[in-house]
Design a protein around this nucleic acid. Sequence first.
DNA 1: TTGATACTAAAGCTATTGCCTAAGCATTCG
DNA 2: CGAATGCTTAGGCAATAGCTTTAGTATCAA
Lengths: 120, 120
Amino acid sequence: MILRHMLNQQTELDSLFHALSDPARRAMLERLSRGPAPVSELARPLPMSLPSVMQHLGVLENAGLVRTQKVGRVRTCAIEPQALSQAEKWIHARRTEWEDRLDRLGAYLETLKPDERDDT
Amino acid sequence: MILRHMLNQQTELDSLFHALSDPARRAMLERLSRGPAPVSELARPLPMSLPSVMQHLGVLENAGLVRTQKVGRVRTCAIEPQALSQAEKWIHARRTEWEDRLDRLGAYLETLKPDERDDT
DNA sequence: TTGATACTAAAGCTATTGCCTAAGCATTCG
DNA sequence: CGAATGCTTAGGCAATAGCTTTAGTATCAA
């Protein structure tokens, strides 16, 4: 089935957009876009337990949005901007497809003579 | 609490990214970015029942990504590109924040004399 | 008016998500 | 060594997501 093709390629976008759909995870990314941080610093402003923060971190890592590394007892997290641009590309493609279509439609309407138009 | 502020403003992004996180919904948007379509045409390529498609459509409408209008017995759907650009903005902001930071860091390291550097 | 078309509404079922607490490592500090 | 720090594991629990089937309602076509 044709859908199989789509679904396979899109698993990556699934996890990307899913990761971005939670305010706690976006807050973590916002913090990390200003520089790397240990887990406990990501957790500090969030109104939830540390295990919950770890789960969110797991979702971000799984989506490829964050890379982490443990040194001693501290796990340091850093954003992975390439993953973000995947999502950006998809969104941008949809927007421009739509806008190009409108442009073509407008240009086409321009070519019509007034009595051929359908814009009553 | 500071988080309240963030969470209130971000409910919009929540529903936006959540809507984008499903392959069926993205397929619907891809179709709609090439022009408006009735529900049944959105449903045709999808491997699920019509009620399921309607639910996905509800999610897209709720996120402001799609506007629909019923005429006779046909409901016509159209994409709403403004909603998409909200999401695009957030992602772009994170990417540029991170890249600007790296630029500043690089510039700072340039100003250091060789024996002050920490790049062993 | 009868039948087909295009949705819509209702209810239910399973899996996933997002949270929690409690307990368990390792490291580092005193 | 013993205690504090920073994460990690395990388990459980309520809410939501995504799907289904069944049974409508409203148009439109013949």
